[in-house]
Design a protein around this nucleic acid. Structure first.
Length: 788
RNA sequence: GCCGGUGUGGCGAAAUGGCAGACGCACAGGACUUAAAAUCCUGGGACUGUAAAAAGUCGUGCGGGUUCGAGUCCCGCCACCGGCACCA
């Protein structure tokens, strides 16, 4: 409930903020200035008491609402009938719901949106500040989909309206042979001529009926209809036909394009189908290459008009020149577009945070929304008997009539927030869970998020995290390490970054990014190497493994399987392997006879005194307080070094193999020195905590010592001096081929090494009766004889 | 189509440019046992060779290159996995 409260509190922050393009950050809505025309038309200039509500005239309200970071939209949304709710773009994959794979259709509905698009540039630029995998960053970049280009206005022949298009290739303007509007484009009704009216109407209806799924699946074949109208190409005055086609999306760019079939694959296909002219305006650098359908950079040709000529210019320069000309003549301007859309934030579900919002009716009869004050938080969902939507399709909360009208003069919002809302900031609440006054205290936030010394980024600057900061964990801003799967690449990880950035702009948190270092753990596949799924019947249930082998073995196996980031198949036999290893560790410490005694006692005893029977198990007599031999120390310290280094690099698999090597050797020891055995348990503790703690406690008890939990003992340090070898093995090569190994003192000089290498038994046959042309000696590494 | 990742024994995998296959699984042989399980020991890339050895040749997806020396670096391919995709 407390958590609901603060999630709603953050929502209110979003609701009461706007993105100021001048300061390039979110600001409280109070800093928003009304444009002159609204001030002039306004009858009630007083905006200072928003709580009073009635002082908001509709023009002002509409203006503020158009700027809020949380706003209401009437645009078509992704409706999933099966799930009974709308979904965000990120939750729709190939026209199906991400959860369950049910069909999704477009449906106009009144929905809450979050203005994540205002943060597109920051979300993109700040990827440079964080240590995530390239593939994950690339997925986000893809999703944000920044593209640079220009907007160009085309006059419609016979009308005063213009069609504005977005293009990344303004340099191909001379090659535009027709225009295409999205079927939903606002101008279609207006410009369609009488004889085309029927065909256009029919096509639009047809397009509207198509689901997202059909739109993507039927992408192969182009379709479209001529409107009967013509546009004027601003560079040469040419009259070109205006078509509508569903390959142009209403929701991207301006919903209209200029078609340059010669240099765009889609336009080329369309022109081919409808016999539209194709004019070359780019010459590929490779003279033999076909210019038809060539979409790369080249040199502009056939691009000369009465006022401007691009002919002869390379693509990059042609783009610059035409854009400058368009801007100078007020025909267009340089623009950046993003694929990212605003985040559809409301759901028609019961389980979810209710919006802290009510609806009211103004004096003009128009209904409008108003945020509840902070003091009314949390807004809890009403108790319901039935969690299904109402008969007339309202969200479940609409069933609670009393709750709806609880606040006099208003009706509560019945939508709820998606599950992503809470996951957007839980890492902040973890820092200060019980705080009743704030979502997180300043102190806790700055301590844990470690913002000290982190300079704040602003767009366009170099990444400001120095190598020193990268190397020093205490300096890394945000969550130090976040381990998660890629399935959240454009959902949780994008949403949380967005919320965090808003909170950052509003001064609520001190870092620009929430998660500094992120590691994607690889997917664990089923034993058949396929993705685990119920339908394939290859799901491994962890509970079963835990019952059979215990938590330590399960945990250890998952770490031992291979590199953390890699996708790898499950193998239950592998669990048995690490289980055997843990068994060897146990037997290294425990006296076998006493354990046999315990087992026998256990089979005959009643279950209640099993705890006492455990006392029968004694430590192995080989464990003594004797000093360790140099070889024992060496084995231990090699293990400490390897495990320490590997933990740092999250190479758990090789850390575990180092412990196996140690155990394999220790099994042969007659005397097991206590300090060595203790230190080993410390190394084991992070991997198999239960077993390690158990043995740790027994070890201390047996020697009459007090045992603090392993979790609180300092990590062991290795002594490099103990790892120094007096003699080392060096490979001997002849003509680069390995032939033998020699043993020489560590500090042997080159002459000694060469002599020893020449004498190497197995290298002899390859050296005899040959002349040695060259000897390559890399000290402590190898010897290579080049012979002829 | 575009982007990212991965290719090494029968399998999961190791290897700062310097003895490829550590460690584990599976397998085979042996010890213990009346027997089995458990445990312990031994073996193991392929090919040639040998009674068995010894010894040699080949071998890290494919083709080139750099280097005394390449699984590792460079260039060009191929295959598989993941993501995006009528985004102008």
């Amino acid at each position: 409930m407390e958590y609901f409260k603060w999630t709603q509190w953050i929502f209110l922050k979003l609701y009461n903020s706007w993105f100021n393009p001048e300061t390039n950050k979110a600001e409280p809505i109070e800093t928003l200035k009304f444009p002159a025309e609204i001030v002039a038309s306004g009858l009630r200039p007083d905006l200072s008491v928003p709580g009073a509500g009635t002082t908001f005239d509709s023009a002002r309200r509409a203006f503020v609402d158009s700027k809020r970071l949380a706003y209401v939209s009437e645009a078509p949304v992704n409706w999933c009938p099966e799930l009974g709710t709308v979904l965000a773009n990120e939750e729709v994959i190939d026209g199906k719901s991400e959860v369950g794979g049910f069909p999704v259709i477009r449906k106009p509905m009144r929905q809450w949106m979050l203005r994540i698009t205002a943060y597109a540039e920051k979300l993109l630029a700040d990827l440079d500040l964080i240590d995530w995998s390239d593939s994950l960053k690339e997925m986000q970049r893809n999703w944000i989909g920044r593209s640079e280009g220009a907007e160009v206005d085309f006059q419609i022949d016979g009308w005063k309206e213009k069609i504005r298009v977005f293009t990344t290739r303004p340099d191909t303007l001379f090659g535009a042979t027709y225009m295409v509007l999205a079927p939903e484009h606002a101008l279609v009704d207006k410009i369609t001529t009488g004889e085309q009216c029927e065909a256009v109407k029919c096509y639009r209806e047809h397009a509207a009926r198509k689901s997202d799924l059909e739109r993507t699946e039927l992408a192969k074949e182009k379709s479209g209809v001529f409107t009967g109208a013509y546009a004027i190409n601003p560079v040469n005055g040419g009259k070109i036909p205006i078509w509508i086609a569903d390959y142009v999306l209403a929701s991207y760019g301006t919903g209209a394009i200029m078609a340059v079939p010669a240099h765009d694959t889609r336009d080329y296909e369309f022109a081919g189908k409808f016999n539209l002219p194709v004019i070359q305006v780019v010459q590929p650098a490779d003279a033999k290459a076909d210019w038809q359908g060539f979409t790369g950079d080249g040199v502009a040709v056939n691009s000369t008009g009465p006022e401007i000529s691009l002919t002869g210019l390379p693509t990059a320069e042609a783009k610059k020149m035409i854009t400058a000309w368009l801007e100078a003549n007020s025909l267009g301007k340089r623009t950046i577009n993003y694929k990212l859309r605003d985040w559809l934030f409301s759901r028609q579900r019961y389980w979810g945070e209710p919006f802290p919002v009510v609806w009211k009716k103004g004096p003009d009869g128009q209904s409008y929304h108003e945020a509840l004050p902070e003091s009314s938080l949390p807004v809890l969902p009403p108790v319901l008997e039935d969690y299904k939507p109402t008969a007339d399709g309202q969200p479940p909360l609409a069933r609670a009539k009393d709750w709806l009208g609880e606040i006099p003069g208003s009706t509560r919002e019945t939508n709820t927030m998606p599950q992503w809302a809470g996951s957007c900031w839980y890492y902040l609440r973890y820092l200060d869970v019980k705080n009743a006054r704030s979502f997180v205290s300043k102190d806790a936030e700055s301590y844990w998020m470690g913002a000290n010394g982190c300079k704040v980024n602003s767009i366009g600057t170099q990444p400001v995290i120095s190598n020193l900061q990268l190397a020093t964990k205490s300096m890394t801003p945000g969550v130090d390490l976040y381990v998660g799967g890629t399935e959240h690449a454009v959902l949780h990880l994008l949403y949380a970054r967005f919320w965090h950035k808003v909170l950052f702009d509003l001064g609520c948190v001190s870092t620009p990014e929430p998660f500094y270092k992120l590691v994607n753990q690889g997917l664990i596949l089923g034993e058949d190497g396929q993705k685990m799924s119920k339908s394939r019947g290859n799901v491994v249930n962890p509970d079963d493994v835990l019952v059979e082998y215990g938590a330590d073995a399960f945990r250890l196996y998952e770490m031992f399987m291979g590199p953390l980031q890699e996708t790898k198949p499950w193998n239950t036999k592998g669990v048995e392997g690490v289980y055997r290893f843990l068994g060897r560790v146990w037997r290294l410490f425990v006296d076998e006879k006493s354990e046999t005694a315990f087992e026998q006692a256990e089979t005959t005893a009643v279950s209640s005194n099993r705890g006492e029977l455990l006392e029968l198990i004694l430590l192995d007599g080989g464990i003594t307080d004797l000093a360790a031999t140099p070889a024992q120390f060496k084995a231990l310290h090699a293990c400490i070094k390897k495990v320490t280094d590997d933990l740092d690099g999250m190479r758990f698999n090789t850390a575990i193999s180092a412990m196996m090597v140690f155990i394999n050797e220790a099994m042969t020891w007659q005397n097991k020195p206590l300090p060595v055995m203790k230190t080993f348990l410390q190394l084991l503790a992070p991997f198999a905590p239960h077993l390690a703690e158990e043995l740790w406690a027994r070890l201390h008890a047996t020697f009459g010592q007090i045992a603090p939990s392993l979790a609180y003992t300092p990590w062991p340090k290795f002594d490099p001096a103990l790892l120094v070898e007096s003699e080392i093995e060096i490979p001997v090569q002849v003509n680069g081929k390995f032939r033998d190994v020699i043993k020489v003192p560590v500090d042997a000089n080159n002459a000694t090494i060469e002599a020893a290498a020449k004498a190497a038994e197995k290298a002899q046959p390859f050296l005899a009766s040959k002349t040695i042309k060259k000897v390559i000696i890399v000290p402590k590494k190898m010897v290579n004889f080049i012979v002829g």
